[in-house]
Amino acid sequence: MTTNVKTPSKLEKILRAGHLAVTSECGPPRGSDPEAITKKAEMIRNHVDAINITDNQTSVTRLCSLAACIHIKLMGLEPILQMVTRDRNRIALQSDILGAASFDIHNMLCLSGDHQSFGDCKQGQNVHDIDSMQLLQTVRYMRDEGKFLGGDDIKRPPRMFVGAAANPFADPFEIRVPRLAKKIAAGAEFIQTQCIYNLNKFEEWMRLARERGLTEKVFILAGLTPMKSAGMAKYMKNRVPGMDVPDEVVKRLSGVSKEKQPEEGINICVESIQRLKECRGLSGFHIMAIEWEEKVPEIAERAGLYPRPIVN
């Protein structure tokens, strides 16, 4: 992979220098108190390279991703702006990309977003003017060509390091790698995966990606979410679409007392990272400790991902 950076993104610099990157994520609050976001970011600031800010995740209305990214940026941290295509058309998306660029937000993750029927506005419209692949193309076009989709020149184009999500566990499995190739062709430079619990299946996906040379073209960050309880594991297994939680994980958590389950969840997460550090072609970890951000430092330290590298 080329070591030449294309953007001022700290995440890009770390990845291109060959370090294992660590990212995490913070969900904005259901209110306007900026402390709800800055407190979470403060907990993890020394243990991660960049922080994803979710965009109205699960379609529940929250403080907007862009504003939360600005709060994080003003703390001297590195935000990754998540943008879904559910709520905005191409005018609004391009406009928000420029808004983010004006605050020198240098990372973006392009997503389609959960369907609005999961959230608090079930009766609302969805937009989906473009899809997540086309959003990747849009940002890359704005950055690399310095143009709007309409063809006009952008004064001071955005300088975003562009990422996408990948779910190695969704169906049908045979198109998971072709789909990754398609996202790379659309412009993805880094990938953050769905939460990994089925390590064998993930390693198989990585092997197929390596065989196609895709790990030479994109930085893949393995997504990990520590389980807080056996109940959470069962819920994720049975209720969350596209999630692959093997029975062993549920059993292991159920096998310890309720008080010990959070600790066991952290153990599983740490062990997973340790195992995946050996996975060839993997470029880092995306630790999504949902409403459990305070555990990210412990996970990073125990998994040997601390201290974080310093890049200029």
């Binding site: 369907h115 899809d131 969704a170 659309a186 769905q194 596209g242």
Partner: peptide, 12 residues
Amino acid sequence: KRILNGPCGGSS
């Protein structure tokens, strides 16, 4: 989601 380059991650 009228996605033209699907499926999305929610397909199960």
